[in-house]
């Protein structure tokens, strides 16, 4: 039953600059089950977007460098595919929604053309057929099809994100990579867009990787969660595992930093300190410096991944003890 649509094994991605090597993603293991939504949670710079772009192989190379790892999508290894083979997958079987709808659309082409472009790339259809389907897509995301010939600057932020979503879903992808799809939108629009994505996902039976730093979004839309810190997955499990029994000190810190409605709080409780410099990652646990429970052992060597309950993995030496 739990058929995996995507499996990432030991993914390592670095950015090589003149000055240093940035360790963006260091040995990430993930899998997405068909029809499910996996949430990738973490701070800015933790490597979430790099993971998503590695799947589509649209990282800028150079400076990005794919070091090692396997990305298996629907039984096929993506990392060894040629560029031409990858183009047939991008936008067709795996699509992506970007963080900032303001800049994700080409400002000098009509939104209709941009949606139809994706359709005619992957389907043997005539121009007018592609346009007809692009209009249907617009209607599906709640934009009247009369606006087909309009340009991005004539749309508001929320509407632009709908266009981006219509573009991503135009070829019925099996997997959708949503990279902070609601971060740039205001809260009321966020709810609308999330609801719409949820409905469309159910209707089209897609699997989704939802990248966010908003735990509220994760709780409402995801089945599994991977918490990412400094290029590593520190905790991985179902929503129940992560929200009801968080086991990694970083996850606890994330929850602790949220304000609560039931009690009166005078100050927020942020996690102290900053993420380690990605060019000089510490040898031991990468969270040790900020961790309230850290011991000398933590800084000595990197912790192993422990399974606290079946399916709930934690990268911390204290877990499972």
């Amino acid at each position: 039953m739990a058929e995996k649509i995507l499996e990432i094994k030991d993914l390592v991605v670095e950015y090589h600059t003149d000055a240093a090597i940035v360790h963006a993603v260091s040995g990430v293991n993930l899998s997405v089950i068909k029809g499910e939504t996996l949430g990738l949670v973490g701070e800015t710079g933790a490597g979430k977007t790099t993971i998503a772009r590695s799947i589509l192989r649209i990282l800028p190379t150079p400076p990005a460098k794919f070091r090692s790892g396997e990305i298996i999508f629907g039984g096929e290894e993506l990392t060894t595919k040629t560029e031409v083979e990858m183009r047939k997958i991008r936008g067709n079987r795996i699509a992506m929604i970007f963080q900032d709808p303001m800049t994700a659309l080409n400002p000098i082409e009509t939104v209709g053309w941009q949606i139809a472009e994706a359709i005619s790339l992957h389907n043997e259809v005539r121009r007018d057929e592609a346009e007809k389907r692009a209009m249907d897509m617009l209607e599906m995301v709640g934009i009247p099809m009369e606006r087909f010939m309009e340009y991005p600057h004539q749309f508001s932020g929320g509407m632009k994100q709908r266009v981006v979503i219509a573009m991503a879903l135009a070829c019925n992808p099996e997997l959708l990579l949503a990279d902070e799809p609601t971060t740039a939108l205001d809260v009321t629009i966020q709810a609308q867009v999330l609801k719409m994505m949820q409905d469309l996902k159910d209707r089209l039976n897609m699997s989704v990787i939802l990248i966010t730093h908003d735990l509220g979004v994760v709780a409402t839309s995801c089945q599994s969660v991977a918490v990412i810190y400094a290029g590593e997955i520190v905790e991985y499990g179902t929503v129940e595992h992560i929200f009801d029994h968080p086991a990694h000190p970083y996850t606890n810190g994330l929850f602790g930093s949220l304000p609560r409605l039931k009690t009166t709080e005078r100050r927020l409780k942020p996690i102290k300190g900053l993420m380690p410099d990605p060019t000089k990652m510490p040898e031991g646990c990468r969270y040790a410096e900020r961790c309230p429970d850290a011991t000398e052992e933590c800084s000595a060597k990197p912790p192993d991944v422990a399974e606290v309950t079946p399916g709930h993995q934690v990268k911390c030496i204290k877990a499972g003890r």
Binding site: E83, R87, K88, I89, E109, E117, M167
Partner: peptide
């Protein structure tokens, strides 16, 4: 620009990405 990444993510060929977008 982001819309260039968008065009690549659609599966568009590098030539069209450069010369059209």
């Amino acid at each position: 620009e982001d819309y260039i990444v968008t065009a690549r993510a659609k599966g568009q060929s590098e030539r069209v990405v450069i010369y059209r977008h």
